[in-house]
Amino acid sequence: MDLILQLLANGISNGSQYALLGIGFGLIFGTTGIVHFAYGPVFAASAYVMWWLIAALGLPFPVAVVLGMAFAAGFGVLAYLVIYEPLVERGSPSFVVLVASLGLFIVIANTLAIVFGTDAKTLPDFSYGIYFLGDVVVTGVQIAQVLVFMAVALALSAFLKYGTWGSAIRAVTDNVDMARIVGIDTRKVAIVVFAIGSMISAIAAANLLVREGASTHIGFFAVFYAFIAVVVGGVGSIRGAAIGGLLLGLVESTGMWKLPTEWQSTIAFLVLFVVMLWRPTGLLRGN
């Protein structure tokens, strides 16, 4: 019984991280229709930048996170303007955009290794303490992860509901053509969502940095899990991405209750496979 509770706790914590990644990715994907595979390397790059700001320049952690978010926003927008926009404008099919972002993925992952070296980047002895709930252990980082996710998710939905750009973003997500007809500048909306989505990835990167540090290949898992969270939840729905991410974390963790743990990712993907066959457009309404 202890084990399943512990696995549940871990699942919620990890699921929060996936969900966080998912809502950032889902915002970009749902609004622009671009499979932003370079979301992963942007995530990785901002983790490295934050590490560098802290370890080399000695900046305090919150300052580094804010700067890291700004960096990610700039990077994401740049990727959109330089690579995606020209392709989308030429009417390229979406998988050309997908391969282009895979190209970007390769460039960034390798450049990180060249610039920062191939060793792992960690913050020395950054600790949040350990808490016991009965026999279940949770670390401060795990709790922080859940809280950060909830805060970001709430802030994002408030922004989409009340913010200046919120209604425009929702309109574009619903129907691009209609949005264009009613005079919404879809280009600006795309830029805004790339900025916000990338910033969310940087927050997730900060989580990872304190959890286990950054290494060059972290980007792939980030974008893969984010993608899955979004698709399982239903494209175009922030709540769907959040639920998808949490579910992924829970399945991956509790699914191992009675199974050998090397089957962890297999189980997660098997569930994904079944969910997709059962509900092809995701758990919540997808478009």
Binding site: N10, S13, L208, M256, T261
Partner: peptide, 8 residues
């Protein structure tokens, strides 16, 4: 990078 389940 995520081995929480195994450690649990």
């Amino acid at each position: 990078t995520n081995i929480d389940t195994q450690v649990a």
